[in-house]
């Protein structure tokens, strides 16, 4: 299958005696919005860090955009975008400076940067805020800006780690519209979230419990499988059996 962007087989990560990620396997396809759910401590972040090349697996294999996570981390890093759960732009730089910094980091030339950043600003309706310090923007705007900056180099996959934490419902809605737009353009979205209504927006959802993937399917089929009305219920049914506390 040519359109597999992320492929994971028996991926495991141990910290001493503790198995944070326990033999997980899944595939993510091009243009998919893949929801990666799990309670705190279920191992989501650890798994995601391995896929981003921030941490090496103890065993198992994984490939992202065709490169091995164990040996080709550098190549992966150049082709993915990442937005962390903490706000991580520079507050003391302007919107434009933040954009050109990350464009520069991903190797865009001055000309490309200029073009791409202008285009993204226009899409965000941010043109007037070009020279505003990021620190003085409202949180929702910052998150939207973080997202476009994570995609500034047109990555093939974007990893979003709880991107909408602490954001109001309207902005959350707008945020998801941006995610959809990116997915339609062929970018694969790998997103973790705690909001179960957001899980409904995903093409497919995996739910991790105690380091294992316990369920993986489209939201509609998952609800059917667990005879639940909402993803929230599905999640509760699965998480009830968790042994790891917060």
């Amino acid at each position: 299958m040519n359109d597999v962007v992320i492929s994971v087989r028996e991926l495991t990560k141990c910290f001493g005696d503790f198995t944070a990620v326990d033999h997980i396997s899944f595939d993510v396809h091009r243009g998919e919005i893949f929801g990666f759910l799990g309670a705190n401590g279920a191992g989501k972040t650890t798994a995601m860090r391995m896929l981003c090349g921030l941490s090496y697996p103890t065993s198992g294999t994984g490939s992202v955009v065709g490169y091995d996570v164990m040996h080709e981390g550098d190549k992966i890093k150049r082709r993915i975008g990442y937005m962390s759960q903490r706000f991580s732009l520079y507050n003391d730089l302007t919107v434009w400076e933040n954009m050109s910094l990350f464009a520069g980091i991903y190797g865009l030339t001055k000309k490309e940067t200029e073009k791409r950043a202008t285009e993204l600003l226009a899409r965000l309706n941010f043109v007037s805020e070009r020279d505003t310090l990021v620190g003085s923007l409202p949180l929702g705007w910052k998150q939207k800006l973080s997202f476009v900056i994570a995609t500034i180099h047109r990555p093939r996959v974007v990893f979003l780690d709880e991107p909408t934490g602490g954001v109001d419902p309207i902005t959350r809605r707008q945020f998801w519209e941006m995610i959809y737009e990116a997915a339609e353009e062929g970018t694969t979205i790998f997103v973790t979230t705690h909001y179960m209504d957001e899980a409904e927006y995903c093409s497919r959802v995996s739910i991790m419990v105690d380091g294992e993937v316990r369920a993986l399917d489209t939201p509609a089929r998952l609800k059917k499988q667990f005879a639940a009305d909402s993803m929230d219920e599905v999640f509760r049914i699965l998480a009830r059996g968790a042994h790891r506390g917060e």
Binding site: C52, G53, L54, D74, K77, R78, I80, Y82, M83, S84, R86, F87, S88, L89, Y90, F102, I105, Y106, G107, F159
Partner: peptide, 10 residues
């Protein structure tokens, strides 16, 4: 938290 983003970059 910006360090994390830098480390994910190439």
């Amino acid at each position: 938290g910006t360090m994390e983003v830098l480390l994910v970059s190439p």
